[in-house]
């Protein structure tokens, strides 16, 4: 049964929390729209994978975490970094390859790192980062801390060996890790149904005797609820969970790819946009009298201002000096 809150009653005491989730999703949305525009102007290079449409997963999940917890994500991770609290300035500057970027201009869009928030990347090889999450969880258990690791990956990563090897070890060793599969239906241009023998990702947990959850990835509150449970299991009992969050990306796989192309239809895209996570939460809040038009406009204006500031910062920030080419290859 898919976890969803579309019909649930909201708690008026949580108003500020709901507003913050809305603000974060809007921040990601506006940030990504502006990043796309900057990419189109040639100000951002390389691969740039936008998160538009999937905001509820990162925002809902990361909102559950404590300071000591670790996040490891793949290459569509701008939203996760922002949700974790890395400033829009340092994420945008990183996309611009500037010195003030969170990875000092050496990582780029796919390799955002912020050690100060335990945001450990930003990884560009599909599925390759999943074992790393088991590693950071292993370290937490080894040190007997209560830190939890949350690992984000797409549904296309679940057919790669690293996914299975990691889930097996995480379950076997009882590692405090939450695996969140953001099922946006397409691995680049290949539909899930054309790549996987089993269409329900969460069922894979069964192979490893692991807890599983299926959640509406367009419903930020539902994501929050599900991840809260999973984090608690990890933190309290050292048990990992595989969560499948069903979501949808509005843009192409990367800025270099078509928005729908041959692999999906415009109609499908429009239909999915009806599930828009931001509009969903907004209307839920309006319906519950927890938000009005002015309130939404205020949030939106603040977010736009923050993104504009980030763009200005990134534009004006310095490139890394030439000598940085050879720094940080080896640690002392």
């Amino acid at each position: 049964m898919t976890e969803s809150t579309q019909t649930a009653t909201l708690d008026a005491a949580q108003r500020d929390f709901y507003h913050d989730l809305l603000r974060q999703m809007l921040l990601i949305r506006v940030f990504e729209e502006q990043a796309g525009a900057a990419y189109a102007q040639g100000k951002i290079g390389g691969f740039c994978h936008l998160y538009i449409g999937q905001e509820a997963v990162a925002v809902g999940a990361i909102a559950t975490l404590a300071e000591q917890d670790t996040i490891i994500a793949a290459y569509r991770e701008h939203g996760h970094a922002l949700a974790r609290g890395t400033s829009a300035r340092s994420v945008m500057a990183e996309l611009y390859g500037k010195l003030g970027g969170c990875s000092k201009g050496k990582g780029g869009s796919m390799h955002l790192f912020d050690a100060s928030t335990n945001f450990l990347g930003g990884h560009g090889i599909v599925g390759s980062h999943i074992p790393l999450a088991a590693g950071t969880a292993f370290a937490a258990r080894y040190r007997e801390t209560d830190a939890v690791t949350v690992c984000f990956f797409g549904e296309a990563a679940v057919n790669i060996g690293a996914f299975h090897e990691t889930l097996n070890m995480a379950a076997l060793w009882k590692l405090p890790v939450v695996f969140i599969c953001e099922n946006n239906r397409y691995g680049m241009g290949t539909a899930m149904e054309r790549a996987s023998a089993v269409w329900n990702v969460y069922e894979r947990a069964c192979s490893y005797d692991m807890d599983e959850e299926l959640v509406d990835g367009m419903d930020v509150l539902a994501v929050h609820n599900v991840v809260t449970r999973a984090v608690a299991r990890a933190r309290e009992r050292g048990e990992p969970t595989l969560i499948e969050a069903r979501t949808y990306r509005y843009m192409g796989h990367s800025m270099a790819d078509p928005i729908h192309g041959h692999y999906r239809t415009k109609e499908e895209l429009e239909e999915q946009k009806e599930r828009d996570p931001i509009e969903g939460l907004r209307s839920q809040l309006v319906d519950a009298d927890l938000l009005d038009e002015d309130g939404f406009a205020t949030i939106r204006a603040a977010v736009e201002k923050e993104v504009q500031d980030a763009l200005t910062f990134a534009e004006q920030d310095a490139d890394p000096p030439p000598e940085d080419l050879y720094t940080s290859v080896y640690s002392d």
Binding site: T70, G135, A162, T166, N168
Partner: peptide, 21 residues
């Protein structure tokens, strides 16, 4: 002791090192 999963446990090692072990 690990399962026979070189990619997996190598990655666990890298992740543990990233966390300071």
């Amino acid at each position: 002791d690990t399962p026979i999963a070189e990619l997996g446990f190598a990655g666990v090692g890298v992740g543990a090192a990233m966390a300071g072990l």
